[in-house]
Write a protein that binds this DNA or RNA. Sequence first.
DNA 1: AGCTATCTGTGACTGCGTTCACAATGTGAA
DNA 2: TTCACATTGTGAACGCAGTCACAGATAGCT
Lengths: 218, 218
Amino acid sequence: MVHGHLKPVSSRLTVQTIGRLSLYRRLLLEVSASGARQIYSHQLATAAVATPAQVRRDLMAIGFSGSPRRGYAVDDLIAAINAVLARNVETSVALVGVGNLGRAILAYFANREPWVRFTAAFDRDPDKVNRILHGCRVYPIDRAEEIIRRDGIRAAAIAVPASEAQHTADRLVLAGVRSFLNFAPVRLHVPTGTFVDDVDMTTALDRVAFYAHQPQGS
Amino acid sequence: MVHGHLKPVSSRLTVQTIGRLSLYRRLLLEVSASGARQIYSHQLATAAVATPAQVRRDLMAIGFSGSPRRGYAVDDLIAAINAVLARNVETSVALVGVGNLGRAILAYFANREPWVRFTAAFDRDPDKVNRILHGCRVYPIDRAEEIIRRDGIRAAAIAVPASEAQHTADRLVLAGVRSFLNFAPVRLHVPTGTFVDDVDMTTALDRVAFYAHQPQGS
DNA sequence: AGCTATCTGTGACTGCGTTCACAATGTGAA
DNA sequence: TTCACATTGTGAACGCAGTCACAGATAGCT
């Protein structure tokens, strides 16, 4: 779930399209590694569990063209997506909350997405600070504003308890963060122009439990 | 992201509504604990970062009525949502993949959602099996079909590497699982009537990185 | 060189989730 | 008891993401 008000970035680059581009890139990297140099929209669509028209629309949105009867050039497409998604620069992300979940996040993303790096983590617990976890240094939460400003960090993952999430977000916004990956099972109130992507495992689990009880029929 | 084709469960119980009901319930439990007995749609909407009309439509979808000038009865509403979401029974969920992420999931949900329980976990690694993690026993992956069938488990969380996710899902579907919480950064091909809720942290992080670079203006 | 098959690019359309707006309701105050 | 008004319930309108369907393009085959 995504919330937070944003004007469209370009003509037709919606949040959904951005998400699918991320998926396409992952799939294309595998395709490229397997040696294929061209790919059709219907092949990419199958891999992404989408429709060919959807794929073509998404690529149209980033101004990437293929050629009839040959499809899209895989490596060029990867480069085009890289240019759009990450502006070809490494993005620094802060992590707040180094509990079970926070540590799993650091472990999960270590060496996974080269264009994104967790450069600083923060926690309230004095026992957790001043360590280095998966290449990310943990600082006391009180130094968050200072370090985020110093390093020009504009993105942050929130992995604190639900009761502290809003307060944490407020502080980060003031420090200059405009884009949140929110793992807390609450919705954050943020100013216009701030992006929030909720990764709400609680809601997801409730949904899964609900549909587990539905009658088999399609 | 949710995929997998499903006919509407009831008249207007969409996937989105189910998700919001889960959120409402969490908020209402806090409200109830704080002592309030009635709540207005606009109060619930503010807490959920939604609109009053949205809240009223969702409650209409589960046939719950309030009264003008007094709003909705908090405890009755919680009970109504419980009845819809979990059918008032405990749901058993299997976990496949007991790596960093899988263990974090078990820790995260231990004692969090009383109506959902991870009753069995599976892993390929012989070193990980036959332990009990956060109240959940870990079995070798080869016993998955047997145990899922034995316990009538219909929901599963997938926390295996991307390359094994599809294969894992296929086996689980054959064993009777109809509802997936997919943490692997791929889209699963599943038969009609099977539900998949993707918790794709990779895509989410890419989105957050993208919007971190967008100009401040709303 | 011409022809054909098949894929891309895109205007138009569709369906659906959300929001609007207002009639109906009934509560609490005087 | 009456009145006033804040809140609910919901038909209708809206907007947008996704799909359709076809014109345009081009590579390969004969």
